[in-house]
Write a protein that binds this DNA or RNA. Structure first.
Length: 113
DNA sequence: CTCGTGACTCCCG
DNA sequence: TCGGGAGCCACGA
């Protein structure tokens, strides 16, 4: 039996599809995307995907943050840009620059409890 | 070809 | 409690 075509893509391609599915006004974590793409520990590859794909495709790379709910970028590296973009979508950061996961964390439609 | 690094995350001592 | 190392995959020098 052949695998489904949607599963034939590489991690890179799958990650792109996942990121594109992030709804506006929501954020996701690297590990989350990596897990959805097939490798729960491939968070680093997600980073590579964002850097590469964001330049060609209109990926919501700014909706991807780390496990802490914080923007991992360094000042001058897109950190302010990401925060500004999220803020423009309605995402709010607290004084520590943390996002409220209870309100903005993207919940993938995997299954109903 | 080999080595190192990267917007990360998890596990173990 | 806190720190360090390993894991994941890709790409540049």
């Amino acid at each position: 039996m052949k695998k489904s075509p949607s599963q034939e893509n590489s991690f890179h391609q799958r990650a792109v599809q996942v990121v594109k599915k992030i709804p506006r006004g929501r954020v996701a974590t690297y590990g989350q995307i990596a897990a959805l793409a097939g490798s729960p520990r491939a968070a680093r590859q997600v980073v590579r995907v964002l850097n590469t794909a964001s330049e060609k495709e209109k990926l919501p790379w700014h909706r991807v943050i780390n496990r802490e709910g914080r923007v991992v970028l360094k000042p001058g590296r897109g950190y302010e840009l990401q925060k500004a973009l999220l803020k423009d979508e309605g995402v709010v950061f607290d004084d520590n620059g943390l996002v409220d996961f209870d309100r903005f964390l993207w919940k993938p439609r995997t299954r109903k409890p």
